Simulated scan of single mutants.
Amino acid sequence: MNHRPQQHQAQDLLTSYFWSGDGIRSRCVSDIVPCGRVDVPMPPARLLADWAREISSRLVLEPGDVEAMPLARARARWPDYARCVQAVSDWACALGLPGVLAGSDVALMACRGARYHHDGAQYGGAAFCNLFLSEDRGQDLHFPSLGLRIPLSRGTVVIFDTCQPHGVIQRHSSGFHVADFPPGQDCIQLFLTWELPIEDTHVAHALQVAFDTAPSTSSQLHEEQVWLNGARAAVCPDSGRWCRAGESPGSCGDLP
């Protein structure tokens, strides 16, 4: 399934400036979010116990934290890892993305919810493909600018533009709240994530990404960033609304 907003506000012009080779290139930010569900088995008990020890002893996740887990060690204890990857690969292929996962970097991640953010300051040249591995914790992957909430459970798979604001929140909440992830409650989401190159022909076509939308600005920049309506933008971590970079969250939504 592909999600795309029914209405577009002409004044909201998002631009990603990202590294392409030795220079900064501009592109639009996609509002297309393919999502679905694939059949993947529950990770074995030994692996789940190893993950729990890693999270409690090394990561010590606070509400909103998203951290990397050791993938190589997990694969050694995960006989169905290849089956999981193949399930996502087949799903992506059906979307017109043949072989894209095979050539993309993959990581194992854990989060205790996720404050709203965009990843365009570090991964502007990519789209993320996420496979969620945890059982239903009553949480959603929320894209506030798109009006899209994706219920998370084992086998949920999604592809999205890294520059699109997103967070992981409780299903009953309208935003991110620390109190929704109390100590002692199993709130952890584990997921595999692939970095799909946004300049790949298949990826750009699937997400309908247009390139070189602001070449005069991109030629003056020296780092990746996201602009909204001609100004560098940031995301309010609690609401997911856009605000001017460097201003307080209280100004969110006030960009021209």
Rank of each mutant, 00 (worst) to 15 (best):
Ser248Gly: 05
Gly175Lys: 08
Asp90His: 12
Ser134Pro: 06
Glu67Asn: 09
Pro70Met: 00
Thr156Ser: 10
Met109Phe: 02
Arg244Lys: 12
Trp91Tyr: 03
Asp238Pro: 02
Ser239Leu: 13
Glu199Gln: 15
Phe143Lys: 04
Pro41Asn: 06
Met1Glu: 12
His222Ser: 15
Pro182Met: 14
Phe176Trp: 04
Ser145Thr: 11
Leu228Trp: 05
Ala107Asp: 02
Leu13Ala: 10
Asp31Tyr: 05
Val85Ser: 10
His222Asp: 15
Pro5Trp: 02
Pro197Lys: 04
Glu199Ser: 15
Asp136Asn: 14
Pro151Gln: 12
Pro43Ser: 12
Arg37Ile: 07
Gly23Cys: 14
Gln189Arg: 03
Arg25Tyr: 08
Gln164Val: 06
Met42Pro: 04
Pro237Phe: 09
Gly21His: 13
Glu247Arg: 00
Cys252Pro: 09
His166Thr: 07
Gly96Gln: 08
Val33Met: 00
Leu59Val: 06
Val158Asn: 07
Pro43Tyr: 11
Pro43Leu: 10
Cys35Gly: 15
Asp50Val: 00
Gly99Leu: 10
Thr193Arg: 04
Gly253Cys: 11
Phe132Gly: 00
Ser20Thr: 09
Leu71Pro: 00
Asp90Glu: 15
Ala52His: 12
Ala74Pro: 02
Ala204Cys: 06
Asp161Arg: 01
Ala245Lys: 10
His205Glu: 01
Gly167Tyr: 05
Arg149Ala: 10
Gly113Met: 12
Leu255Gln: 15
Gly167Val: 02
Val66Asp: 10
Cys35Pro: 03
Ser145Asp: 10
Arg73Gly: 14
Arg37Lys: 13
Leu95Tyr: 05
Ser104Leu: 01
Asp254Ala: 14
Ser104Trp: 00
Cys111Met: 03
Arg27Pro: 06
Val106Phe: 01
Pro79Ala: 12
Gly184Met: 13
Val106Tyr: 01
Gly253Leu: 04
Pro237Ile: 02
Asp12Met: 10
Val178Lys: 09
Leu228Tyr: 06
Ala10Arg: 12
Pro151Trp: 13
Gln189Met: 08
Arg232Leu: 11
Val38Thr: 04
Arg58Tyr: 09
Ala52Pro: 01
Val40Lys: 02
Val203Thr: 00
Leu146Asn: 01
Phe160Ser: 09
Arg154Phe: 06
Leu148Ser: 03
Gln185His: 13
Val203Asp: 01
Ala87Asp: 08
Ile169Thr: 13
Ala92Phe: 08
Asp90Gly: 12
Asp12Tyr: 03
Gln86Thr: 12
Gly113Trp: 12
His8Cys: 01
Ala82Glu: 15
Pro183Ile: 05
Val60Trp: 05
Ala68Ser: 11
Ala204Arg: 11
Pro144Ala: 02
His222Tyr: 11
Ala92Asn: 06
Leu61Thr: 01
Thr156Cys: 07
Ser26Met: 08
Cys163Pro: 05
Val88Cys: 13
Gln208Leu: 10
Val157Tyr: 04
Phe128Leu: 02
Pro41Ala: 08
Ser216Arg: 12
Cys111Arg: 07
His118Met: 04
Thr15Glu: 05
Ile32Ala: 14
Met1Lys: 09
Ala102Tyr: 00
Arg232Gly: 07
Leu61Ala: 11
Asp180Asn: 04
Glu67Met: 14
Gln220Arg: 15
Asp22Gly: 13
Gly124Met: 08
Ile55Thr: 09
Gln11Cys: 07
Gly99Tyr: 02
Gly175Ile: 11
Arg58Gln: 15
Tyr81His: 13
Met42Val: 08
